[in-house]
Design a protein around this nucleic acid. Sequence first.
DNA 1: ACGGAGATCTTCT
DNA 2: GAAGATCTCCGTT
Length: 215
Amino acid sequence: MSIDTTTTMAILKRDFYNRNACQVARDLLGAHLVRFINDQRVSGIIVETEAYRDGDAASHAYRGRTSRNTPMWQTPGISYVYLTYGMHWLLNAVVEPENAPAAVLIRAIQPLDGLDIIAENRYGRPPREWTNGPARTTMALNINAAQNQVDLTSQSDGLWIESADPIPDSDVCTGPRIGLGKNVPEPWRSIPWRWWLKDNPHVSHISKKSNVEPI
DNA sequence: ACGGAGATCTTCT
DNA sequence: GAAGATCTCCGTT
């Protein structure tokens, strides 16, 4: 789909995040993930997300609160950044009311501003592979442990999300979440809690093996 | 284009 | 001690 990038942006407020993770994941499609690096704006359009909810066996929060997953219980609208596979940082937005552990994983963006910085951060890779995955996205935007538990509703920490033109349902696809452990039981294993923009070339490469169905 | 394996280390059992 | 909300490289088609 083509995307209008001339819209006037507004930073998403806490109320936006204080909702069911599935609704937030759906509505984050098309929003702009923005990072400030060396006084330069680096951003991308969110094109793929996943929801993780309370009681969800695939969620980090499922077996209770630990030092790592504590942000999931905290104020909606903060970040939850964690290290996976010993080497990759993944960015989540914490959602739902405080004490209801839930988050939305940002799985892919379409590069928008600061392409020179993104190219530098993803040196040697073709543009198509700059941000088409959750760890590729954090590498492109210099996101790591320093961005854990920052306030996404404020510019003060150099990482926030802005609203843009709403995406119609006809341009949204859903499917099962990617990369879940093989011991994750049904219905969580195949529940369609991943959302992406139809035909967008920047969705995560690893997800392209999975099924593709419109809402 | 696709598939398999290694990388690498924190977190929790 | 094992398992990850993954990426990259290197093989083969």
